[in-house]
């Protein structure tokens, strides 16, 4: 399974985000919400997936020893020991992925959306409205900092206590 997803990752990542955005707009249309969502997913899921595989591999062997000593079945191992053990790694990866997602979403919105920061940024640019371009860029920067400081960092700190 890991080999399959690694191959899929390589395929998805080898195609530019710009190409994804244009192709998806052609398929779903400019007014659809799907292109930005799918482009962001394509850009972020490789980070999350490789982190998940890495986390599962790096689960402390003592945790698995505990599972074995209790006689846990495969599903119990997965739900009570493996998945919770991956949380700190996924929280750290989410911080990176959401940073990527916010940046990519602007590109995706610029091409294939009828709203959002990216759309309004390009809209302002097309009409030569400089103040609009800077204002929307500022909104984006403030949004990214706020999400990082108010949500992602606290979640990452909280998840640290899940490490053995």
């Amino acid at each position: 399974m890991e080999a399959f997803f690694n191959a899929l990752n390589t395929l998805v990542q080898s195609i530019s985000v710009l190409v994804w955005a244009i192709v998806l707009v052609m398929i779903f249309g400019v007014t659809s919400r799907k292109p930005p969502i799918l482009v962001v997913t394509a850009a972020t899921y490789p980070v999350l997936l490789s982190s998940l595989f890495g986390a599962v591999r790096s689960i402390d062997s003592r945790i698995m020893l505990l599972a074995r000593s209790l006689g846990a079945g495969k599903w119990e191992e997965l739900f009570y020991f493996v998945l919770p053990g991956t949380i700190p790694y996924l929280a750290a990866a989410s911080r990176t992925a959401i940073g990527i997602a916010l940046r990519i979403s602007v590109v995706a919105e610029a091409f294939g959306s009828s709203g959002g920061v990216g759309y309004w940024l390009v809209f302002s640019y097309d009409y030569g409205y400089k103040e609009g371009v800077f204002a929307w860029a500022l909104v984006l920067v403030v949004l990214m900092i706020a999400v990082d400081m108010l949500l992602l960092r606290p979640v990452e700190r909280w998840s640290e206590k899940w490490k053995l």
Partner: peptide, 18 residues
């Protein structure tokens, strides 16, 4: 080895459940 994401009581009750 106690699961760090569970309290002492939570660890004990999970072990018993399994």
């Amino acid at each position: 080895i106690l699961l760090p994401w569970r309290t002492v009581r939570g660890n004990i009750l999970l072990a018993a459940k399994i």
